[in-house]
Design a protein around this nucleic acid. Structure first.
Length: 919
DNA sequence: GCAAGGTC
């Protein structure tokens, strides 16, 4: 009688062994224990391609083997780190996996076939060969088979087991090469950095309490750190620049309104912006030149891959990547979602998506939408994002979980499941439909645009509440050649902002873009920055480097070895590894090339180690002695606490250096970089007994600082004695802005690093601005020429202040009662209340004010201020508000006004202006 | 004492 075939099946983890066994055996598998506690054995009879067999199903726990150096090279002082580039490496089963190995051997001896159910990716293939290696030693006659599967659902598993293939050795070799490169460069540079720095500096003093701290280097962790440091340098290098833009707004008589966006966006030259603005004010009538109305579609989200899910979870669910992956893993192991580590964002056309949708038709929350998809009414085939790892489908729900069945779940797990379901249903739905109207208008040859949007059909957005799509749905109706008078026409200003600190989402995106880490490890590499003390995450969840992190990156930058931290490092390694995976290049060739390359970098770095000592020394005092007081990151001078630091929770200290200006710094310096420098005219600063009403209230409050300032050096409007909160007080900030801050000698300030140059406003680089400036200049020259030759044109210089007889009036628009309406006000601060307080600009007829009429009352929306047309517009349209029968009329009193009938606000009498008041 | 990648 023929012996029954016995098949050993091995999965990457127990949960998969359990689920596959249950699915293939119809839940009749017998569970038995093995010598490895976490890897039991499931057994059940099965028919493989019609052949009856006994299935034994067990598992490993990830990689079975590790790559390491032999004992002779493991001790750090046993050899130079350089020798690690030529040292032998060994792949062996570590002590904690010995029982897993023993279990495999025991089972292999009973079997004729070995079926590998490892995950279908590069690492899974490598683990498969580790399993083969162990099993073959126990039973050399084993027949090796590979099961390829992508979801833990019965039909998929049965398809897989009836179509067994062979493992792919190239995929596995690519992993071997990656492991060896990572080990050699990671171990050598970690030892280099650690041995160089460990004894040279007093780390204890700087908040690093390990007796022998490790300064690790890795080909993923350093490029990750590099991204954070590079952003920090961009922020430091930013020089704020003022810009100006024309703001126009129109409110139609029917009530609809829109903002008209200047085509030039913004200009960095005040004079030019003013000239263009003045041309608009001169001829403010807007003409509609183009109206483009069309249907617009908003597409549903792409099917989810791991990193897109991480980013979405951070944004919509506020779940950090590492936490989200743990919950997704649980959902996968329980069979509710497909494999959560995938790069694929396109469904195989053969996939039965409708069957997956039908799972959800009875759900009270999204069942109705699922029914509409199932019926075809809402169905649209999901789009593809163009990424396919050929191992797993996009992340999607595989089973419906009734709301009452998952009550015991972690609330975040429920939210994540719901997000994955809704995202899947949305991706199978029709796009949303809107109606967009784009309008272009010109005002004095300047172009402005506005857009309106009406959402007609929400479709996929109905099942995906996180989506936002909307614009101005209250756009006035415009027709080509129509003219209208803008309601507001203002010259506004702003300052360019530095780029923001790195958020976790930014970091993940950048790492994904550069191929740093895998879907499963990106979150770990980010966490490692915090664990190693290379970076900090503040209360707003934004990342910045610590002084240590910055010093390490700056060291390699200085050495001319920026490739060791730049984000392209991992991509370059991965590129060559992929060629091995595809069978295009032999593993050894790629390996030798990489090892030689990094060996060269190591030799260069070791030859310039003095640079690393110097760079780190800028931040950290040496063991004997210390950095200069107050130097960036050096030992802090003595001081007293003023409250808690929002960045790290330690104390903010008012530091009083023996020489130089006091400043506030965190006691966690240099790891924490929180620091506030004081205005240059500071003579003395002490902690006041006044608490700030708003800062750090949840941490016991923050004390205000009492300043004594050099009177001669402070601008008008500031007092020599000031009590201020250094974190929130606007007057303190204004003073810093006006006078600059006093920083200790040696402090770097606004140095552009890493070849980044000066970062300016976002959205338009210097080159773009030069171009814009050139075209604008041409136009301004034309305008100025035209203006000079204009017949009968009014030479419109600034209005003349009636009190001073000079053009000392400025345009102001801060009237609360008349927002957007501008008036002229005397710029002399001491006389602002005494002198001419205002003249509505829309009531100014372009004549010097002294020749027309200035009103004495504060603009409070009195009679004369009732909603007229826009500034400039009113003047054009009405020939000057208050111009009745050729005579000027006082809008407040209705009495006639002219140059001879001035009204003196000082004495209240008519017949003269205040600057000529005899009283 | 080191990497990155699996998984617990």
């Amino acid at each position: 009688m023929q012996r029954t075939l016995t098949v050993l099946n091995v999965a990457e983890k127990n949960s998969i062994a359990k689920q596959v066994s249950a699915a293939l055996s119809n839940n009749s598998a017998t569970r038995g224990s093995t010598c490895s506690n976490y890897n039991p054995l499931f057994s059940f009879p099965y028919a493989l391609n019609g052949m009856p067999c006994e299935m034994l199903f067990t598992s490993v726990a990830g990689h079975l083997m590790e790559l390491d150096f032999p004992e002779a090279f493991k001790k750090w002082h046993s050899c130079s780190p350089l020798e690690l580039y030529g040292a032998p490496v060994l792949k062996c089963v570590p002590q904690d996996k010995k029982l897993v190995e023993r279990n495999l051997k025991e089972q292999a001896r009973k079997c004729q076939w070995l079926v590998l159910w490892l995950d279908c990716d590069r690492e899974g293939e490598n683990i498969a060969f580790e399993v083969i290696d162990v099993c073959i030693k126990a039973n050399p006659r084993l027949l090796i088979k590979r099961a390829k599967f992508s979801a833990l659902v019965r039909r998929e598993l049965e398809r897989s087991v009836q179509n067994l293939g062979v493992p792919d050795e190239n995929l596995s070799k690519a992993v071997d090469a990656r492991q060896e490169i990572d080990l050699r460069i990671g171990a050598s540079f970690t030892r280099f950095q650690t041995l160089l720095l460990q004894e040279k500096f007093n780390w204890e003093e700087h908040g690093i309490h390990d007796e022998r701290p490790i300064f690790s280097y890795g080909p993923c962790q350093f490029p990750t750190l590099g991204l954070i440091v590079q952003r920090q340098w961009e922020i430091q290098a930013h020089v704020a620049e003022p810009f100006w833009y024309i703001y126009a707004m129109y409110r139609a008589p029917e009530g609809q309104s829109c903002t008209l966006h200047w085509q030039r966006d913004r200009l960095y030259d005040h004079v030019i912006a003013t000239i263009l603005y003045e041309t608009c004010v001169d001829a403010p009538l807007a003409t509609v030149t183009k109206v483009d109305a069309r249907q617009k579609l908003r597409w549903p989200p792409l099917p989810l891959a791991t990193l897109s899910l991480q980013k979405e979870a951070i944004t919509h669910l506020r779940l950090p990547g590492e936490r989200m992956m743990k919950l997704a893993e649980e959902l996968y192991q329980e069979g509710f979602i497909s494999y959560p580590r995938t790069e694929t964002d396109v469904f195989d056309p053969a996939y039965d998506l409708k069957a997956l949708v039908r799972e959800h038709v009875n759900d009270a929350r999204w069942g109705q939408h699922a029914q509409r998809i199932d019926s075809g009414e809402m169905w649209a085939a999901p789009r593809g994002g163009g990424h396919d790892d050929h191992a797993h489908p996009p992340i999607h729900p595989t089973r419906w979980s009734a709301p009452d069945a998952n009550q015991g779940w972690d609330p975040n797990k429920r939210r994540l499941y719901e997000f994955i379901v809704r995202s899947f249903l949305a991706s199978c739905s029709k796009p949303a439909v809107g109606f967009e109207t784009q309008v272009e208008v010109t005002i004095a040859a300047e172009t402005f645009r506005t857009t309106g949007l009406m959402v007609k059909e929400r479709n996929w957005m109905e099942v995906f509440p996180w989506a936002r799509w909307g614009g101005n749905d209250n756009l006035p109706v415009f027709a080509v050649n129509q003219t209208f008078m803008p309601t507001e026409l203002l010259l506004k200003d702003g300052m360019t902002q530095p780029p923001p600190k790195m958020s976790e989402r930014d970091l993940i995106s950048a790492m994904e873009r550069h191929g740093i880490g895998t879907d499963a490890t990106v979150a770990d590499h980010i966490q490692k920055q915090l664990d190693r003390g290379y970076a900090l995450k503040d209360a707003a969840q934004l990342f910045s480097p610590t002084a240590l992190g910055e010093a390490l990156v700056a060291s390699y930058h200085k050495m001319g070895l920026s490739n060791l931290w730049q984000p392209t490092l991992r991509g370059a390694i991965e590129h060559n590894i992929t060629e091995v995976a595809r069978g295009l290049r032999p593993k050894q060739e790629v390996l030798d090339e990489a090892v030689q390359h990094f060996r060269g970098d190591y030799i260069a770095a070791a030859g310039k180690q003095a640079m690393m000592l110097e760079e780190v020394g800028r931040f950290f005092g040496p063991r004997a002695g210390g950095g200069g007081p107050g130097e960036a990151g050096g030992a802090l001078p003595p001081g007293d606490p003023i409250g808690a630091c929002a960045s790290c929770g330690l104390n903010l200290m008012l530091c009083q250096p023996a020489e130089g200006t006091p400043f506030v710094a965190c006691s966690g310096a240099p790891l924490c970089r929180q620091r506030v420098y004081f205005p240059r005219p500071t003579l003395a600063a002490d902690i006041s007994d006044q608490p700030c009403a708003t800062c750090q209230l949840d941490r016991g409050g923050l004390r205000k600082i009492s300043f004594r300032l050099r009177r001669a050096a402070i601008p008008p409007g500031f007092e020599a004695d000031m009590v201020a909160c250094v974190l929130c007080d606007q007057r303190f900030k204004d003073l810093c802005e006006a006078c600059g801050t006093a920083r200790p000698a040696g402090q770097r300030n606004n140095q552009a690093r890493g070849g980044g140059g000066q970062a300016r406003g976002r959205g338009r680089g210097p080159a773009g601005r030069c171009e814009a400036r050139a075209s604008v200049l041409t136009r301004c020259v034309e305008l100025l020429r035209g203006r000079g030759g204009r017949q009968g044109g009014m030479a419109r210089g600034p209005p003349v202040c009636p009190r001073h007889g000079q053009p000392c009036l400025v345009k102001t628009s801060n009237s609360a009662a008349n927002p957007g309406r501008t008036f002229f006000k005397c710029a002399h601060p001491s006389e602002a209340q005494e002198c001419l307080d205002f003249m509505w600009e829309d009531e100014w007829n372009g004549q010097p004010l002294g020749a027309s009429r200035a009103r004495r009352t504060e603009p409070r929306g009195r009679g004369g201020n009732r909603g007229h047309g826009p500034r400039g517009a009113g003047r054009q349209q009405h020939g000057g508000r208050g111009n009745a029968g050729g005579r000027l009329v006082d809008a407040a009193t209705g009495l006639p006004l002219d140059a001879n009938e001035g009204s003196c606000y000082k004495c209240g009498q008519r017949g003269h202006w205040a600057n000529a008041c005899p009283n």
